[in-house]
Computed example of a mutant assay.
Amino acid sequence: MKSGFTRAAIAAALTFGLAACGDATNSEGETAEAAKPKERIVVENARLVLPAVAGNPAAGYFDLTYMSGGGPVIESITVEGAGSSEIHAVDMIDGMMKMDKAAPISLMARTPVKFEPGGYHVMAMKPADTLKAGGKTNMTIKLSNGEEATVPLDIKAAGDER
């Protein structure tokens, strides 16, 4: 009888233990899955460089990493305080560097995409006079899968390091 009770107790403990693994909760009552970091769009080194000549577009630079799979496409990027925003790329065409709107940019899991001088960047058209060097504004990135992230941009003067 003792061994039957022991086996039953072990079986109950294993069953309870396995069930707990599938739905573990933290001190706030969230499951382990819900408690994982929610940042799937990670943006680092984000800055907006103001134009040297008032009325010209400002340029946004940053490093973007998509932390999940699925390969969504960047649908749009908007800069708060700009009349409009466009994603541009600099390419070598017929031996000359040319800037134009970028082709759709697909994101690969955990593969950084750099928005930098001489490559991809965001053109912030008609920047408002309220955008001042040393300040901050926000940028919103929207993906084709419906995800979006709003991140702060440090505002830099035209002559500052890009």
Rank of each mutant, 00 (worst) to 15 (best):
S68V: 14
V42R: 12
I105K: 02
I41P: 01
A34W: 06
E28L: 10
N45R: 14
V49L: 02
A89I: 11
A89V: 08
P37S: 13
E86N: 08
G81I: 14
K38N: 15
R40H: 10
A35H: 07
T31A: 08
G55M: 02
L64W: 03
E86V: 05
G81H: 10
A46V: 06
K38V: 15
A24C: 12
L50V: 00
S27G: 12
T78R: 04
T78Q: 05
I93M: 12
M99N: 13
E75D: 12
P37R: 06
I77D: 02
A19V: 13
D23A: 15
A103D: 11
R47K: 09
K98R: 13
E33W: 05
M97V: 07
P57E: 04
A34D: 15
E30G: 08
G95S: 07
S84K: 04
M67S: 11
V43R: 03
G70I: 08
D63N: 08
A24K: 06
M97T: 12
H88A: 12
G60Q: 05
G95M: 01
D91V: 11
M97F: 08
M67I: 06
P104M: 02
A58Y: 05
D91H: 11
G60N: 06
A59F: 10
A89H: 02
G60K: 01
V42H: 04
T65F: 05
S27V: 15
E39I: 15
I41N: 04
N45F: 02
R40K: 15
S68E: 07
Y66V: 06
V42I: 13
M97C: 07
I87W: 00
M108W: 03
G70K: 10
